[in-house]
Amino acid sequence: MRARAHRLPTYAPLAITSMMDLLTIVLVFLLQNFETTPSAETFGPVELPTSTSEEPLIVAVTLTVSREGLAVDGVPLLQVAPSVPNGWPPGVVREGILPDLAALLQARRSAAEGNADPEDVDMVGQINLVADRGIPYAALRDVLSTASRSGFTRFRFATAGGAQ
């Protein structure tokens, strides 16, 4: 009777082999789906338009235009909603240029040009534009115009894949 009481606290070893199998399969699946390409850095709720294009985004400065404002590489720059259909409110935009954005882009361009890394040199003049699908072109026009005049003339519009 006493010997039986001694046996009770003995536990069977935890069989983790099946769990290891499961975790390994999940890990392989996630590693396969892991993307090393840059993703769209968003600012505020942004609903991307769909497109049939399958080209990925590039490594470049990312401008986000949402219904809340404008951000550069995920950092808010202007927290003013672009008015529909006239684009940015007066004061924020002057003669088709967003002065704050222009200053920042020119600084980025100078920094990239001074960098000897070939990958950074390649990104000079390129921009990823992440914009909400309902944004009027007037708001984008001012952003594109500012970027263009700051030396960024090549754009990539971020879209959600899968459109037919």
Binding site: L27, L48, T159, G161
Partner: peptide, 27 residues
């Protein structure tokens, strides 16, 4: 197990189930 347990949450947060593509344009 520790390594895998750390990797899986990291990969789950990094996984994008909606792929982001792009369309090129120039000024």
């Amino acid at each position: 197990m520790n390594l895998i347990s750390l990797l899986i949450p990291f990969l789950l947060t990094a996984t994008q189930f909606v792929s982001t593509t792009s369309v090129a344009a120039t000024a």
